[in-house]
């Protein structure tokens, strides 16, 4: 019994330490992303708290596994958490960023902006974007790809 208790205790402390490390590394990036979506600092902070509070030991092991991009997985968790929220807000073009202007988005062509913003901040699928813009899915994917080309060329 003693070794199990010791292991559980040590494991909990290790998880706490890893979680704090993840928070220090990615908390700001996630908060920036969430703030862009919810447009409210207080709400964004609460979402961030919820995400890190609900992060389980298995999740931590999974997202920090070798070969995985930890931030992408954390952002994916944030997207899932924000899914119900983004369903209730207006279109991307109608809202103004409260944090600061995204220099990459500003450099994109209008169609690229709509596709990137709709998918990145509003969690829309390729199919939904294609239906909304009345364009084939291949075109939406192409616009998205071009949007990333803009980001990469302006890093």
């Amino acid at each position: 019994m003693k070794p199990q208790l010791v292991n559980a205790d040590t494991s909990l402390q290790a998880n706490l330490s890893t979680k704090q490390d993840l928070f220090n590394r990615f908390g700001g990036m996630l908060l920036g992303y969430i703030s862009e979506v919810v447009k409210s600092s207080a709400e964004a902070e609460q979402y961030l708290i919820d995400i890190f509070s609900q992060l389980q030991a298995a999740d931590i092991r999974d997202i920090t596994a070798p070969g995985k991009n930890t931030f992408i997985y954390l952002q994916s968790m944030a997207r899932k958490k924000l899914a119900s929220f983004v369903a209730t807000v207006d279109e991307c073009a109608d809202v103004t960023p409260i944090v600061n202007d995204n220099k990459f988005v500003n450099l994109m062509a209008p169609e690229q902006q709509v596709v990137f913003c709709g998918m990145h901040y509003h969690g829309k699928t390729i199919t939904k974007m294609a239906a909304e813009l009345n364009k084939p899915e291949a075109t939406i994917k192409q616009l998205l790809r071009e949007a990333f080309t803009v980001i990469r060329s302006n890093k």
Binding site: Q20, F23, G27, G28, M29, L30, L31, G32, Y33, S35, E36, S41, A44, E45, L48, I49, N69, F71, I72, Q75, V99, N100, N102, K103, F104, H120, F148, I151, R152, K155
Partner: peptide
């Protein structure tokens, strides 16, 4: 690239958050 966008838009969390 995604990480880079996020770094660009990062907001330092308030001290109380952790």
């Amino acid at each position: 690239d995604m990480e880079h966008i996020a770094q660009q838009m990062a907001v330092i969390p308030p001290v109380r958050t952790w």
